[in-house]
Write a protein that binds this DNA or RNA. Structure first.
Lengths: 152, 152
DNA sequence: GCATGATGGTTTCGATTCGCAACTCACTGG
DNA sequence: CCAGTGAGTTGCGAATCGAAACCATCATGC
């Protein structure tokens, strides 16, 4: 069975022409991005996801099923054993910028000054630098310097 | 009063030491980020948010209250008139990278090839370039080249 | 000065979703 | 053969959501 790309996965998007809204229809709940976060950090099995997130088992079951159905996770046989495991697809892996942006926003705005939190480091242990959008000329972009162009 | 430096929005975070989880506790639902998106695109009034998102009025009322309580939106008197309006605070404004990352992910993975969608352009009308994280040495970063360092 | 219509919500209430706990099923090590 | 673990499913009460109705405050038309 060929994996058809995306053939209207749901009967109706919240806002069909906005990519932000479509993305949120797929991962815009309390748990999906935490599952993706843990998958990026090495979680593979149902129990491991459950242990890391603390999510209720029936909800985890539902989220794993939905993320799989939407093509963010794939189920495959574990290499060293007969059990199944969940791995990120390319689309799931590609959520890295979203998770990183959320992480850095959280570090800046959801912790009291000096309050301890986990951080993201590169393979040498150095902190990941600030992740900020820039225009083609290198100037920083924000909501004031951009606008949404609606479809024609 | 007793407004301590810590906001303490809820009795307990989902995962207190993870900035991703704290960020999702604040904006990780289907609607909050769409409200922020529209605020970034110029929405100011209750009715305007309602018209753009299509959210139920009671839920919008709740989200505006929570976003305000968490310091992402502020209410102030409209300049031309005596009605109130909602504007992004610095923390809300600072969600721009999150919304942009979601937008670009949505464009790549939630639309069929060739399917029309709105896009983000700069003040000259040029499309915003790809927003991808890089390490301090300029190499691209992803989940494979980074890891979470837990707090000591 | 009173009907009419926005604006900015709140209330009501049925439907949906959540989350805890208990249960099942498959397999596995002793 | 039995205990234990992984991977879910089921049942059920509690919390949340959403559509529609309702309410209060202004502003305008007349």
């Amino acid at each position: 069975m060929s994996r058809a790309p995306t053939r209207t996965p749901d009967p109706g998007w919240t806002d069909p022409e906005c990519p932000v809204a479509r993305a949120l229809d797929l991962v815009g709940d309390r748990w999906s991005l935490l599952v993706v976060r843990d998958a990026m950090d090495g979680a593979r099995s149902f129990t491991e996801f459950q242990r890391r997130t603390g999510i209720a088992r029936n909800i985890l079951s539902d989220r794993l099923r939905k993320l799989t159905a939407h093509g963010l996770l794939a189920q495959r046989a574990a290499p060293s054993g007969r059990r199944q495991e969940y791995v990120l697809t390319e689309a799931g892996h590609d959520l890295f910028p979203v998770v990183l942006a959320l992480r850095q926003w959280g570090e800046r705005h959801a912790f009291a000054p000096g309050e301890a939190h986990s951080t993201l480091v590169d393979r040498h242990g150095a902190p990941v630098p600030e992740f900020a959008p820039t225009g083609s000329d290198g100037t920083p972009l924000d909501a004031g310097t951009t606008r949404v162009r609606k479809i024609r």
